[in-house]
Write a protein that binds this DNA or RNA. Structure first.
Length: 521
DNA sequence: AAATGAAGGACCC
DNA sequence: GCCCAGGGTCCTTCATCC
């Protein structure tokens, strides 16, 4: 499995298109949030996911560029084109990263011609030396002359035995680059060591294959990518981060290599273990992946089945061994942050706008849905979502607004003074609009619609508030029950310790952790 | 008793 | 050095519905 990740994607695109940005500290995003920063800005501590105004404080000279998504999409398409030649079934996780299965490519590669592994050099970065001295003309093959895009070569016998299965050409290329200095003494630019030629021949093994792919990406987009090669996606994702700018890393498909790699790996490196999880696990003295296995007894006690399996898989370095090109989407949404809003009419107006946008998006993607969710974020940053499923699939903004309005109305009614900083509308339970029949809509829809209407009538607003308060009381009660349960955890441990041989020295810590989890609302 | 909905979070890019 | 956009997915808990 190979994971490929473009280096500081958005920032790199902007720097590519505006050379004046290259020597500056810059970031892409807005005043409220940055999505990427370049390496100069990172030296000041400016990182992705940081509010722009804070970044400005860290680095006064920071240039903030608004994102240009159409550009990123175009670049992503180019990258995908390269991906497709190595694995037509590649799966894109976002605009700038994807997983590929190289198995069948490697089969093909073993029997490939040199010409099929040769990539012409059509572009050199401006930071790189162009001087004759260090960019010798490379004659790929005396018989074939200048090389174009690799084509099926009919006469096979003529190719020399120079590059056997065992003898990859990596050595040859390296050898020619190793003698060169890092920088040219004439132009003082970096010397293009990996490919000081008009065409580059890549070797047979997977490292070479991935280098070739990254080289192709660079040639077509003028941007660099990093990659990770490993026996499964979980590991390859981590690997692509190891040699981050413009590099790659491989974990061999052997037991030793996988164990060596995973054992000392901080859990936070694994995709899916975030801030919260890290903190919780560190409370149990779990910092590295091997600790997950060491503390498996305790973990099983406090985790759900799914989480526990997940942890164990991580600790053993187990992950998915196949990629599936994107499944169908589950939801579609629009949301917007704005300056504090208290006026109701303004809120309804905003809601309408969002519904309008969402409706357009749905239509554009040929989708209809039936669950509408209203999301609001108050000035204190607390987030609330309210959802309602309607009878019929729709993409009509007026219909969406009808229910979104109701949801917003009850929210306004339920709070004395609503101060909003964000509003969003989401549609889920999606269907392809072509797939839905009018019959389904008419009969089934009519019945459920009636039911909903009756149910809604019977629930009047004061009742709703009462019900809400009642539910709060119930919630508090369940929290208390859980708290009591956690007090009994000590006894539980003792019993479990007897029946199973669990090494739990730090029971107190675990109870603290447990309380933290259960008290968390 | 199993399935579905709703609400809330964690997490990812 | 700080509490954060906007697009998603998935998990968990609780309620409800036959």
């Amino acid at each position: 499995m190979v994971h490929v990740d473009m280096d500081m994607f958005y920032a790199a695109v902007e720097m590519r298109d505006d050379p004046s940005l290259r020597e500056k500290a810059m970031a892409v995003g807005g005043n409220s949030m940055l999505s990427t920063s370049n390496y100069i800005a990172r030296r000041f501590g400016v990182r992705a996911g940081m509010p722009g105004f804070i970044a400005k404080k860290l680095c006064q000279d920071l240039t903030i560029i608004r994102p240009h998504f159409f550009k990123y999409k175009a670049v992503s398409k180019q990258v995908q084109k390269v991906f497709a030649t190595y694995d037509p079934n590649f799966s894109m996780m976002s605009l700038d990263e994807g997983y590929l299965d190289f198995t069948s490519h490697m089969q093909w590669r073993r029997e490939s011609e040199d010409s099929e592994r040769t990539v012409p050099v059509v572009w050199r970065s401006e930071e790189m030396c162009f001087c004759e001295k260090y960019c010798p003309k490379y004659v790929y093959d005396e018989n074939q002359g200048q090389e174009e895009i690799p084509e099926k070569n009919e006469d096979i016998s003529s190719s020399p035995d120079l590059f056997d299965e065992d003898d990859s050409n990596e050595e040859n290329i390296k050898a020619s680059g190793e003698n060169l200095p890092d920088f040219c003494e004439n132009c003082e630019k970096r010397i293009f060591k990996t490919a000081p030629f008009d065409a580059v021949l890549f070797g047979l093994d997977i490292n070479e294959a991935v280098k070739e792919m990254r080289f192709r990406i660079e040639q077509s987009t003028h941007l660099t990518a990093s990659a990770g090669i490993a026996p499964n996606t979980l590991l390859s994702k981590v690997c692509s981060d190891m040699n981050k700018p413009n590099g790659q890393y491989r974990v061999l498909p052997t037991r030793e290599d996988v164990i060596n790699f995973i054992d000392e790996l901080p859990i936070r490196k694994i995709s899916g273990i975030g801030k919260v999880c890290e903190k919780m696990l560190s409370g149990m003295e779990i910092k590295y992946c091997q600790d997950l296995f060491k503390k498996r007894g305790e973990l099983q006690l406090i985790s759900s089945d799914i989480s526990f399996r997940y942890y164990m898989k991580i600790s053993l370095g187990i992950g998915s061994t196949f990629v599936s090109s994107h499944g169908e989407r589950k939801s579609m949404s629009v949301e917007r942050t704005f300056r504090e809003m208290t006026d109701r009419d303004e809120m309804y107006k905003k809601c309408l706008d969002l519904c309008n946008e969402l409706g357009g998006d749905l239509k554009r993607h040929n989708l209809v849905g039936k669950t509408i969710t209203l999301k609001i974020k108050k000035s204190d940053f607390s987030v609330k979502t309210k959802a309602q499923t309607i009878a019929n699939f729709t993409d009509d903004y007026e219909l969406i607004f009808k229910t979104a309005y109701d949801l917003l109305e009850t929210e306004i009614m339920n709070s004395k003074l609503l101060k909003l900083r964000l509003m969003g509308v989401r549609m889920s339970t999606l269907q392809e609009s072509s797939k839905i029949t009018s019959k389904q809509n008419d009969i089934k829809g009519f019945l459920t619609n009636m039911k909903k209407k009756v149910a809604k009538r019977s629930a009047e607003k004061p009742d709703l508030i009462k019900k809400g308060l009642k539910r709060d009381a119930e919630k508090r009660e369940t929290i208390n029950i859980k708290r009591r349960a956690s007090n009994n955890l000590k006894d539980m441990f003792a019993k479990i310790k007897e029946t199973r041989k669990v090494e739990a020295d730090d029971e107190d810590d675990i109870i603290v952790v447990y309380e933290k989890i259960t008290d968390k609302k």
